[in-house]
């Protein structure tokens, strides 16, 4: 939250605005003529994961600025044509600020953005397409994962930890690679068990707590005492298993210790790798509002913010100094965290 405020503050640091809007918007008053369209990936609002995170950013912008918003959602079995149609319908409908949630929109956005030069687009999680009116909002998930890997290695009594990925795609592999690197940086001989719940195009691994339970049980039985769940909604199952077995888990995307939906199992969540898609969405909307739209890639990492680890619950207070040392080294560039195997 503090980070979000910092970033928001950064965004409106210079109050000379050309968009005809006041630099300090008052809540509830329509601030400008922005109309915001959001195209979700499969699952949409309510997926307890990636899409919901984007939705939070949108909600925050709406409640502060009072923009007109429209949310559309992807379906399974789509080709690029349906995604393109979705983006075009938003642009045609007068939505002049359009956010595509997920790399699946890259091809569709490339074709659409060129035809609507006056519309400002953003895409989450993809450095493609490179078009003048597109902002690419990407995250260095490997850096945050490295830090929770460090925490896991320091906290593990068995020297055996686990990684559960929702779906075996390059995006989630970044979490795995960073986590493993973090663990090994602390304890070179530690064991890292790795398991992906599903293979593409089966994306149910992001929202199937039962699969998370089974996978986590296998890891705890095989000697792991901490499991990092980079699996969206399936993480609930991992934490449930952790609680039942007296073990621990690590959350992902938001500070999962504080999520109401996970209140029953929060005691086992020692930390979370925070990826603030909501901050990215909110920042982007603010930037358009303040007429400070910047095209191209904007990387959210430990240095720029948007990626971090959480300490809620106090389970890693004793090692926080050590984790922060690593964090400082990554920020300074002394440690380069790999993102691919």
């Amino acid at each position: 939250m503090a980070l979000g405020l910092t970033l928001a503050a950064c965004g409106s640091k210079n109050d000379s605005t050309t968009g005809g809007t006041s630099g300090t918007p008052s809540a509830g008053k329509p601030a400008s003529n922005l109309k915001i369209g959001l195209a979700y990936d499969i699952g949409g609002r309510g997926d307890q994961s990636f899409n919901d995170s984007a939705a939070r950013g949108l909600d925050k912008a709406k409640s502060e600025f009072g923009f007109d918003i429209k949310e559309l959602e992807a379906a399974a079995g789509e080709t690029d044509a349906q995604k393109e149609d979705r983006l075009r319908q938003l642009a045609e409908g007068g939505y002049n600020t359009v956010i595509a949630v997920g790399f699946a929109y890259a091809t569709a956005l490339e074709k659409t953005a060129k035809d609507y030069p006056d519309v400002k687009f953003a895409i989450i999680d993809s450095a493609d397409p490179k078009v003048d009116n597109v902002a690419n909002l990407t995250f260095a998930e490997q850096e945050g994962s490295f830090l929770v890997g460090v925490a896991a290695a320091l906290k593990s009594k068995t020297g055996n930890v686990g990684f559960i990925g929702g779906v075996n795609v390059p995006l989630i592999q970044k979490f795995e690679v960073g986590f493993a690197a973090g663990v090994k940086a602390v304890k070179a001989d530690a064991t890292v068990q790795v398991k992906y719940l599903t293979q593409p195009p089966d994306f149910t691994g992001f929202n199937d707590p039962a699969k998370g339970e089974t996978a986590a049980k296998g890891m705890y039985d095989a000697g792991a005492d901490i499991v990092y769940a980079a699996a969206g909604g399936s993480g609930n199952g991992v934490f449930k298993t952790a609680k039942a077995n007296g073990k621990f888990g690590i959350g992902v995307d938001s500070d999962q210790y504080n999520l109401p939906a996970l209140a029953d199992v929060k005691d086992v969540i020692i930390t979370s790798m925070i990826k603030e898609v909501d901050v990215a969405v909110y920042d982007f909307i603010s930037s358009v509002k303040d007429a400070k739209f910047a095209k191209g890639e904007k990387v959210y990492d430990l240095k720029a913010g948007g990626i971090d680890y959480s300490t809620s619950g106090g389970k890693i207070d004793d090692i926080k100094t050590k984790v922060d040392e690593y964090k400082a080294k990554i920020v300074s560039g002394e440690i380069k965290v790999p993102s691919t195997k």
């Binding site: 890259a106 999680d125 993809s126 493609d128 293979q199 089966d202 890639e297």
Partner: peptide, 24 residues
């Protein structure tokens, strides 16, 4: 088939990843 396709659609085998893209 799902597993096989996932195994083959991999930069180490039949596929490629553009830098910065999360697609394969």
């Amino acid at each position: 088939a799902t597993y096989l396709v996932s195994y083959l659609n991999n930069p180490a085998r039949l596929a490629e990843v553009n830098p910065g893209s999360n697609d394969v």
